[in-house]
Nucleic acid binder design. Sequence first.
DNA 1: TATTGTTATACTCTATAACTATA
DNA 2: TATAGTTATAGAGTATAACAATA
Lengths: 147, 147
Amino acid sequence: MTDETETVREGELADYLGYALKRVTSLVQGDLVQVLAPFQLRITSFSALTVIVGRPGLTQTELAETLSIERSNLVQIIDGLAGNGWIERTAVAGDRRYYALVPTAEGVALLESARAAVRDHEARVFCALTVREKAELGRLLAKIRAR
Amino acid sequence: MTDETETVREGELADYLGYALKRVTSLVQGDLVQVLAPFQLRITSFSALTVIVGRPGLTQTELAETLSIERSNLVQIIDGLAGNGWIERTAVAGDRRYYALVPTAEGVALLESARAAVRDHEARVFCALTVREKAELGRLLAKIRAR
DNA sequence: TATTGTTATACTCTATAACTATA
DNA sequence: TATAGTTATAGAGTATAACAATA
């Protein structure tokens, strides 16, 4: 079996859940990068656009916290999304320090297309799992994060 | 609940298994980096040393394939392990193009200590899961990789 | 003083092409 | 010509410090 062969080759590494997580994540992300490229999106800009469309008007600091990335690293991502006309930074009355991030109609439309492609991608890379198993995987991952 | 709050904040992102995998992996790896630092090991050098100890005599190309990293990127990792006296590149009779990678006694001893720390680390970061759940997670991840 | 967004910088990881020495 | 190891380089992700504008 391929499984046993891999276990022999990787030896003890195969026993670490962290290693298994890393390998699967890199498999999935490698595929996702290809899927998003035609949309001119990277993984992080897709994630950012998804959150902005879902929570229009949030600030960069809020978005950075949600995605767990540094504010400073978010700047170029936001620049890219705004440069492509997919989001806008609108002034907030009362406090001129921050901007509200809102998607444009083009941004919403682009995300709709990209989202469909990402759904296909997920169906493909996780096709070895049943619906029940996918739900279980999601539950286990959420449980680890919530600890 | 924290779970529901997070779901609201991340919106649709929370529905992607790939995103959940990425977040958990980065959580786990962030912790592991700290755990390995006192041993002068990075994640990849720990992985490499683990495989070399488990399969003494393998070549760099074999190791690169096992870890799924480019041969070129493995060079500095091997240099580091050899520079610290944890492995040796020994000549192979019959074909002078490649070297057999073998651990030194120091390398084996270091790995033994690091391994214990990594076991503790895994117990800690996955403490939210039962033994059965950890086994199930491992099984699901292996299934995805084997597809 | 504290906060938001920003710039600059550096370090890691990863991917590719090209080189050398050996076969 | 093909392969093993190597070098150089560039891209992307990530982390930190410091700054200007605003509160």
